[in-house]
Write a protein that binds this DNA or RNA. Structure first.
Length: 504
DNA sequence: CTTAGGG
DNA sequence: CCCTAAG
């Protein structure tokens, strides 16, 4: 099976325009194969076609890199990123379990990288004269252009609906938070969830099944997925009207690149339903031979901390035609005087991302700069709010602004200490008295509502009942989890008993 | 306002 | 975490 897609991120947004450098490393030019499982075939491919030296442009350098590692003539291989400031060009090959990475370092890292990378691989002998090239907006734009293209989804309703989880043939995949009752033109809460759904997308997947290995009595078919394109949801940008067109362009570019920088994760939806279990096999998930293969969607989801400073908001838009969608600062918690934007109607998308850099925040002279271009793949709406550019760059985002926007609360994972307090409280009070539990164990914790505690307990029970390998986040001591289970069992039993008692 | 559950 | 029907 081969799945391809691409995205690029740079963890130093401000330097994106300075570009990226491709580094040389032993093993192959800019190629590293982390595990011994990397297939010789892939390595050989690199050896046979080392990256050419490029002196005529950054984009060309990276293009060349992409081209050279492309083994089957397809477009750029999957480009993803890890937590470091690198862009990885990965290659997954089921047959060989191969994973090769081409790391692209920031220019700032160049010196170190070069010092530590001898480039001794035979295949790189022609690279002595290699000069790292910057990868400027050029390349980014190119990538975006190719990846963001709406192409195959033009008839699918585009990004109009919530979540804009574009589906394959006109089939709308509901966003995670979409409510059935929501109707067009009805303004919906602004994006909740900075962690969900940024780039949505994913269109078509065409499958072919072929080959098989008799394994344990069933055939192991190959599934070929071709992702036609990913879409970027509507972009929402606030920028002073005194800003220059050039800065506007840069801002938009920043918005887009920021989405990527934030770390993307791929989601898979089958018939509109997200498949969460990464351990499932395609076959188990229903992506297999004999099944309809046009109902799979991939989404690019962004993991982003809400605390990150931001100045630009990206949001998707719901079904509606109005261009005036500035959300009234609905959930503003702080005293920040925020004049409501007029005409604030608009179905906002569930996903919104705050971009690095600025605040945009407390400004409010919305000026419609552009409205959606329905024919374009991005359908972006860019709004400009009067504010000082300098302020934009330095003022930290204000919470008022954020909350008012309807922003989902930032994730605040429970610490082990909190978990312990919760467990203790529940052990004493039971599982149905969350208000009391809040008052007892979390009285001072204003950020924890009793609903939060109830939810946390729910997840704790779940966590305790799954294997340690499946757990995520800060590990909760098994001892606590054991107490969770026993308390849960005890209190649910009590509850049952009380039911019976009241019945008889 | 709280609970309880689904999203 | 969010949303909301119920109580």
């Amino acid at each position: 099976m081969l799945v391809r897609d691409s995205s690029v991120r740079c963890t130093r947004p401000c330097e994106i325009s300075h570009g990226l450098d491709i580094i040389r490393e032993p093993g192959a030019f800019g190629v590293r194969h982390p595990g011994s499982s990397c297939s010789a075939e892939v390595v050989q491919a690199h050896q046979a076609e080392p990256i050419r030296r490029q002196t005529d442009g950054h984009a060309a350098a990276l293009d060349s890199l992409f081209d050279s590692v492309d083994l089957d003539g397809r477009p750029p291989a999957l480009v993803s990123s890890d937590s470091s400031s690198r862009v990885l060009l990965c290659r997954h090959d089921k047959e060989h379990k191969a994973l090769c990475k081409v790391e692209v370092h920031h220019t700032a890292d160049r010196d170190n990288d070069e010092n530590s990378s001898g480039c001794t691989h035979p295949s790189t002998t022609g690279n002595e004269g290699y000069k790292p090239h910057y990868l400027g907006n050029h390349r980014i734009r190119k990538l975006l252009a190719s990846k963001v293209r709406k192409a195959a989804c033009k008839t699918c309703g585009g990004m109009s609906n919530k979540g804009s989880k574009l589906s394959f043939c006109g089939k709308k995949i509901p966003g995670t938070r979409q409510k059935v009752r929501r109707t067009n033109f009805k303004r919906t809460k602004l994006t909740r969830g900075a962690t969900k759904g940024m780039l949505t997308g994913a269109c078509g997947t065409s499958f072919t099944t072929k080959g098989q290995n008799k394994l344990c009595g069933f055939e192991d078919y190959q599934v070929n997925l071709k992702i036609n394109s990913f879409n970027i949801p509507e972009l929402f940008v606030e920028i002073p009207e005194t800003a220059t067109i050039g800065s506007l362009k840069r801002t938009v570019m920043d918005v887009v690149t920021s989405i990527m920088e934030d770390g993307l994760r791929v989601g898979v939806l089958l018939q509109g339903k997200s498949i969460q279990d990464d351990n499932k096999t395609l076959h188990q998930a229903g992506i297999c031979h004999g099944e309809k293969l046009n109902n799979i969607d991939f989404t690019l989801e962004c993991d982003r901390q809400q605390d990150s400073p931001s100045g630009v908001i990206i949001q998707e838009e719901m079904d509606f035609a109005s261009a005036d969608i500035v959300e009234p600062l609905a959930r503003m918690k702080y005293e920040e005087p925020f004049p409501e934007t007029k005409g604030g109607c608009g179905n906002q998308q569930p996903m919104k991302a705050y971009l690095n850099g600025s605040l945009a925040g407390c400004v409010h002279h919305p000026v419609e700069m552009a409205s959606q271009d329905t024919s374009a793949s991005l359908q972006s709406v860019i709004r400009v709010a009067a504010s000082d550019l300098n302020a934009l760059a330095t003022v930290p985002i204000c919470k008022a602004r954020r909350s008012e926007i309807g922003q989902r609360r930032a994730r605040m994972p429970f610490s082990v200490g909190e978990v312990e307090a919760l467990v203790e409280a529940v052990e004493q009070l039971g599982t149905g008295r969350w208000k009391d539990i809040k008052m007892h164990g979390f009285d001072g914790a204003d950020h924890r509502t009793y609903v939060d505690l109830k939810d946390k307990w729910k997840t704790l029970v779940h966590t305790a009942s799954i294997s340690p390998q499946q757990r995520r986040g800060e590990p909760v001591p098994q001892e606590l989890l054991d107490r969770v289970l026993s308390a849960q069992a005890y209190w649910s039993q009590q509850q049952e008993a009380s039911w019976k008692g009241s019945c008889s």
